[in-house]
């Protein structure tokens, strides 16, 4: 059980780190949103699942509460994170930030 939690935590930290790195390395807003959202969400899933496993392994009211609350946090995170990113991308586009190095931009022709 401990090994499982270690692995989950390590994977979570790895993907979170990837997200932060993507934030630093990518050239423009949209690609940064790609990296940040996907990686941090995915990494958070692993990290929080690690906590959930820990909580259930503890058992009892205490551990169960920990696990359920962590799961709720995860659920809300999963619901809000992509939506927030979408809102940011949309806001950035309407605010006049063009995607860098874009090969095609259908939104410009489509509706503005």
């Amino acid at each position: 059980m401990n090994a499982l939690i270690y692995i989950l935590l390590a994977v979570g930290a790895l993907f979170n780190g990837l997200g932060a790195l993507a934030l630093l390395r990518f050239p423009d807003v949209y690609t940064r949103i790609h990296g940040a959202t996907k990686c941090t969400t995915f990494g958070s899933i692993f990290s929080i699942v690690g906590v959930v496993v820990y909580g259930f392994s503890q058992g009892g009211g205490e551990g169960g509460t920990l696990a359920v609350h962590a799961l709720l946090a995860l659920f809300f995170l999963l619901l809000t994170n992509p939506t927030g990113s979408h809102a940011l991308a949309r806001g950035a586009y309407r605010g006049g930030i063009k995607p860098a190095q874009a090969v095609v931009d259908r939104l410009e022709k489509g509706k503005r």
């Binding site: 979170n16 997200g19 934030l23 949103i33 940040a36 941090t40 958070s44 929080i48 994170n81 927030g84």
Partner: peptide, 15 residues
């Protein structure tokens, strides 16, 4: 975007 990332990281850290 950076703020959003910090948000997610803070939530994970808190859990």
């Amino acid at each position: 975007v950076a703020l959003d990332t910090v948000n997610t990281l803070v939530v994970t850290t808190m859990v």
